[in-house]
Design a binder for these strands. Structure first.
Lengths: 144, 144
DNA sequence: GCTTGACTTGGAGTGCGCTCGAAGTCCCAG
DNA sequence: CTGGGACTTCGAGCGCACTCCAAGTCAAGC
């Protein structure tokens, strides 16, 4: 498979594939007599997995560590596992944070919905000052 | 409250606060006779909310739209609600994707764990070629 | 009155992850 | 044999979101 086809199949651009190869995320593929890259389909699985690492927010630097271990092959499994486990914790934390922020978003949207559907001038009025929040009775900045 | 204190309280740097003001995320604060910014505590709530938008992946450009409506004040509630509702859908989608990728991660980690704890040379051997995947019996690239 | 440190502005620099362009080579259909 | 399209390399450019620097002002404590 040449780069154009791999691009179509993987969803990456040919530019990006070459870029990934340059930085070491993708292994050097075989080249045919004209110097054209010739990929094995198995690369698609690896690209898919890279996409998942990326989608879960792993920085390229970390993917690079993982990719290097993968290149090395046997004997690096434990290290790869550790990388993945640490990353999994990051993902779990993000998930938790996202859920929390989502609920804040829900609350806020519900507030807008209530204020607007009621055409409530008082509540709508409040929306500029500090944006709705229920705990608005904050103390002023005190001299420490 | 001056910028340094706001920085400490909000967790943003003074640089970032000025930057946010420049681009329009934060309203122009009052300035004292020396030209120093003087913030009301209520800004902290807004910064907190901005942080939540950011944490949920809203691009600055979109925050800007929201911030501009908030500045305008009354009469922009419906638009703000729409922005938030659309964003909420993005967040839900991210959450779903993250959960899915997390489970892939779990599977992969479990695979490493099994292969390593068994010291299984066959399975470990497989980990370089295409990284463990169960569905390894892929057809070769066919001529379309 | 002098030092220290927090503040001001404008603009330049950074890090990440691509993304694109230029110039050239190669293969194949018509 | 010619035109078109896919490929090659190298290096520059981009968009985002900061982050920092330089040069200057100002207020308070010693």
């Amino acid at each position: 498979m040449k780069i154009g086809k791999l691009a179509r199949r993987s969803g990456l651009s040919a530019h990006t594939i070459r870029y990934y190869e340059r930085i070491g995320l993708l292994p050097q593929p075989d080249k045919n007599t004209s110097g054209h890259r010739d990929y094995d389909v198995s690369i698609l699985k690896w690209i898919d997995f890279l996409g998942r690492l990326k989608a879960t927010g792993m920085p390229v630097r970390e993917m690079l560590r993982y990719a290097a271990l993968r290149e090395t092959g046997d004997g690096t499994e434990a290290e790869r596992q550790v990388i993945l486990e640490i990353h999994r914790e990051h993902v779990r934390a993000r998930l938790a944070g996202l859920r929390q922020n989502l609920s804040v978003l829900d609350t806020k949207i519900a507030f807008y919905a209530a204020a607007i559907s009621a055409g409530d001038p008082v509540k709508c009025k409040g929306t500029k000052e500090d944006d709705h929040d229920p705990e608005r009775d904050e103390q002023r900045d005190r001299p420490l």
